[in-house]
Simulated scan of single mutants.
Amino acid sequence: MTSDTLEQQQELDKRRQADQAYDAIENLIATLQLRPGTPVVESELIARIGLGRTPTREALMRLVAYGLIAQLPRRGLMVSDIQLAEHLDLLEARRALERLIACCSARRATPRQREELLTCAAQMAEAAQREDLERYMRVDQLMDRVNHAACRNRFAVAAVVPMIVQCRRFWYAYRHHGDVAEGALAHQRLAEAIAGGDGESAARASDALIDSLRAFAQQVIA
């Protein structure tokens, strides 16, 4: 292995560890194991997720940028509050981005990505039937990643990811207002439309998914 190849592999390993740290911490926040207002102590997180200081810090920086963690003067890091008043505005912005991503994925996804989307949708339906909320959310996150990779529009993905993260936590916090099976069905229809390569159908399925999230949010806020 050449020195350049070794450096590339080391950089890839670092990026993978940072992604793993991000996934672990985001899951703790999204599932309210770290509740709003909880101080974020780096050493405790490192022990909890089992990863090093550098990937943990990189993950925390991303979560600050996404709004899940607030950086407060003289108080350090703290899990941010859920902003009920702004959530419908967030969904309005997310709708346009998700529609674009769905259309792009329908045109650009590889055969393997189309299969992966269908598999994720089936696993979400199974998790919903079993009322396994943690698995449902993990597969939901995986489906988003496949969809984002398939669309090949990094600017749209960069804009929508913080919104998805906020929506995931909102859903988990108020899940008693929602129908998990309905959510799984909306994801299945989106996966089928993208897998079928029909951009217009994918856009309509994306809108329907956001409609279901909006209806859920309105029940919570009312």
Results as ranks from 00 to 15, higher is better:
30 A>E: 11
30 A>I: 13
32 L>H: 09
34 L>I: 01
34 L>E: 00
35 R>Y: 06
35 R>H: 09
37 G>T: 01
39 P>G: 05
40 V>A: 04
41 V>F: 04
41 V>R: 07
41 V>E: 14
42 E>L: 15
42 E>Q: 10
43 S>V: 08
43 S>E: 04
44 E>K: 05
45 L>Y: 11
45 L>H: 07
46 I>P: 11
47 A>E: 13
47 A>Y: 06
50 G>Q: 10
51 L>G: 00
52 G>E: 00
53 R>W: 02
54 T>E: 05
55 P>V: 11
56 T>R: 05
59 A>M: 07
59 A>K: 03
59 A>D: 01
60 L>M: 09
62 R>A: 05
62 R>V: 10
62 R>D: 11
62 R>M: 09
63 L>D: 01
63 L>E: 00
64 V>R: 01
67 G>D: 14
68 L>Q: 00
68 L>F: 01
68 L>N: 00
69 I>G: 09
70 A>P: 12
70 A>K: 11
74 R>L: 15
74 R>S: 13
75 R>V: 11
75 R>W: 10
76 G>S: 14
77 L>H: 01
77 L>I: 06
82 I>C: 09
83 Q>G: 07
84 L>C: 05
85 A>P: 01
88 L>I: 04
89 D>Y: 07
90 L>R: 14
90 L>F: 04
91 L>K: 02
92 E>I: 14
93 A>G: 14
93 A>I: 15
94 R>L: 09
96 A>Y: 13
98 E>D: 13
98 E>K: 14
99 R>F: 10
99 R>N: 12
100 L>E: 13
101 I>E: 01
103 C>I: 07
103 C>H: 09
105 S>E: 10
105 S>F: 02
106 A>M: 02
108 R>K: 08
109 A>D: 07
109 A>G: 13
113 Q>H: 07
114 R>A: 03
115 E>P: 03
116 E>I: 00
116 E>N: 03
118 L>H: 02
120 C>H: 15
122 A>I: 10
122 A>Q: 14
122 A>L: 11
123 Q>V: 02
124 M>A: 01
125 A>Y: 05
127 A>R: 03
